[in-house]
Computed example of a mutant assay.
Amino acid sequence: MTDLPPRPFAVDHPDVLDLEVAALETRPGAVLLAQSPFYPGGGGQLPDRGSLAWNGVVRDVIGFEPTAAGLWHLFGDDAVPTGAITLRVDPAFRQRMCEQHTVAHLVNSAVYTLFDGALLTGVRMTDSDEFSVDFDLPKVAPEQLRAVEDAVNAAISDDRPVRAFDMPYDDAQATAGLFRAKSVAPPRQANGLIRIVDIEALDRQACGGTHLISTAKARRVRILKVDNKGRQNRRFRIGLGSD
């Protein structure tokens, strides 16, 4: 039996925001569920926000503990859930995470293409209309910055479908360009596969987060600033919905 947590339900069903499930196990302030619409966080993406309810009791979910059996949902007091559990994800927050994650892939694709395969060093999604993506780059010229921004906005205007599929982990490792981070990668799943996110005719890379169904669902972006975070690290600060 594997000790790896199962892939989050939200990754394959990002449109499911309400779900009624039975508890596998409970303890004061927490409930273990085999299936949940909540994304627990990871890869720079923040955990979902929302609530759980049982027998007329409603609590905000404040954290998660992934296990091989399922996902513990924490709600911060001593209540013990009983009966069917109703889960509700905050739709506005989920939309924001999907948008930022999809735009991060577009930025990654543009930088990877325009800077000869420059690798990702970090992503920091936020609960605002600004977030950041870091790359292993020594410098960025103003004209290169404009080229990245133009490429991202062109991809948004093109309305490219965003899909995902699984492939053997070892095959993915042997395929150039599917792993884009300098030091980390989505983990091998218990079945030996890895999830690949495909932006039609533009980009493919390993990823374990939630996304929009098409690039046109994202707002246009501006690269607000590029910060120097070390000799070989540049932080692209991205603004969503900027004119």
Rank of each mutant, 00 (worst) to 15 (best):
Y39P: 03
G42N: 02
G42A: 00
Q45S: 09
P47H: 04
P47Y: 05
G50V: 09
A53S: 15
A53I: 12
W54Q: 05
N55E: 15
N55Q: 15
G56N: 12
G56Y: 14
V57E: 15
V57K: 11
V57M: 13
V58N: 09
G63Y: 02
F64P: 06
E65I: 15
T67A: 14
T67G: 09
W72I: 12
L74V: 11
G76V: 07
A79M: 13
P81W: 00
T82H: 08
G83Y: 03
P91N: 06
A92F: 05
A92P: 04
M97G: 05
C98P: 01
E99F: 02
E99T: 10
Q100R: 13
Q100E: 04
N108I: 05
T113P: 06
L114M: 03
V123K: 08
R124K: 12
S128T: 15
E130R: 14
S132N: 03
F135T: 00
P138K: 07
E143F: 01
Q144I: 00
Q144S: 04
L145C: 00
V148Y: 00
V148N: 00
D150H: 03
V152W: 12
A154S: 11
I156V: 15
D158A: 15
D158R: 15
R160T: 08
R160K: 14
P161Y: 11
P161T: 11
P161G: 05
F165E: 14
M167K: 07
M167V: 08
Y169A: 03
Y169M: 07
A172G: 04
R180W: 01
R180G: 02
